[in-house]
Write a protein that binds this DNA or RNA. Sequence first.
RNA 1: GCGCCUGUGGCCCAACGGAUAGGGCACUAGCCUCCGGAGCUAGUGAUACAGGUUCGAUUCCUGUCAGGCGCACCA
Length: 548
Amino acid sequence: MKKNIQPYIVDVLKDALKKSWPDLIFKEEPILDLPSDSRFGELSSNIALRLSKPLKKSPRDIALLLLENVKKELNSKGHPLRDCVKEVKAEGAGFINFYLADRYFQEELGDIYLKREISLRQDYGRKKPVLIEFVSANPTGPLSVAHARQAVVGDVLANIMLFLGFKVKREYYLNDEGNQINILGNSIALRLKELSGENIEFPEDHYQGEYIRDIAREIKAKGLESRDLCEYGTRYILNVIKKELADFGVKFDYWYSQKSLRKSGKIKKVFSFLRKKDFLFEQEGALWFKSTIFGDDKDRVVIKSDGSYTYLAPDIAYHREKFRRGFRLLINLWGPDHHGYINRLKAAVMALGKPAGSLSVIIVQLASIFREGKPVQMSTRRGQYITLREILDEVGKDASRFFFLMRRTSSHLDFDLEVAKKQTAENPVYYTQYAYARISGILRNCPGKIDLRRLDLSLLKEKEEIALIKKLWQFSFTLEICLKTQDPYMLTVYLQELAESFHCFYDQHRVLGQEAKLTQARVVLLEATKVVLSEGLKLLGISRPEKM
RNA sequence: GCGCCUGUGGCCCAACGGAUAGGGCACUAGCCUCCGGAGCUAGUGAUACAGGUUCGAUUCCUGUCAGGCGCACCA
């Protein structure tokens, strides 16, 4: 029996291809999918369909020919897959479906059970250092809904990549100087005057939120009016943000300050680097970056005619620093308003001599907040927007994290506060957690220890038992999909399906009070299910209640 | 005007270009002498429109219609 069966099956397919068409040059690797329906086996390849064009034959004929050689290969003496694969069939339009033996799944189950004390965390030799930068909101106010979604998506993606063996660090880029910060300082100054009884006119483009008054009051109470208000305000708000994120279960490894970046002279250095490479030019009194060389629509200003930097300037230096710090893959999560910015930063990365693929930008679409089906109006300008804090206070960490992950990251998300608060079947968080609590309940009543020598997992052959075991087996497959799509949302779908498989099993079969050997086997099944649910919920940053 | 995202049953969402388009809610009918009914089983019902590419399109391309967002020498 072989663990980690997929690469072996891919090899079998490759060998069969070579035997069937020795002269064929086909660069794509055969890919294995989970079939759309369980009656098509456990793993499926559509290689025959994709070969249809180059071979100018019908997919069905190709599949049949290929199948013959696949079978020969598998039946050869001593082949490692001999006992794992029960059957191979060519089906449908030309799919080659692999049906795995129950024995294989039973061994997999035993494996999960044995590893339950340690983590299922896998090491595929993927040690690549990855930096995920997300949220990075200006420290000028509390975090909003949009930041909340980014925070969860980034955090969970980081968890998943860590689980799969990458060396991942989380970073928050701190915009601690510039226009917005000056406006923040000025907003505080005006509120201070207001406190002293002066009549003030508060400009529209200043921060309207009540929290500015809070800061002003604190400054006045401590008698710190002479302090640098920009710095004081930034630090004050940063603490608020850190607290919000911590309560949301998001922790950053690094907080990278733009101010310190500028002070270090690294921005100037990157300019001399780019100048040497001839990627800069002057026009109309401004300094431009020739981003069009690398596929951008137009060249971009980096130093304005008044001598100050545009946003892009420190960003180029910042990303150069990321590479210098040893990271080989950079993942940035941005809001949809930054979408037009991707090409120019990619251009910058290429100008720095890095491959385009070393920067991956994930656009996290906005979330709209609803209450009982009605949208909650938001206006940033008037400081009236739903904050992360409000969501946390109202629906709690578990439900809000889960809800932010329930749609594809690239899709709009409608977040209904009332639904998220409900403790009913409408709420998938509780459905999943309930499975965990239910299992815990049974295991609490379970007497004695499992005798591994007498354990016989082949007793697990009921439909619901096999279905549950297969679901467990799909866990690592699911994580690979999350990695490939750079989107953690599939994990929420999987965990709901796993919970469902468990509930179905539970409804049909009893664990306790059976013949001793069967009870033992089923206890192992529950333990393994609990392990996978536990790992999954941990990755999502959601609590695992023993009781509900 | 240009760019991005999205149009799938009454409602919310799935489906690397692949098999009879899945699931949840709601609705209807069932299931507790038995490990937690926050559960399970069954039923009704859908790809916005018009073309194109393909052996095959919900998916890719073009156009139309509808909704959301963004278009700076702002960050």
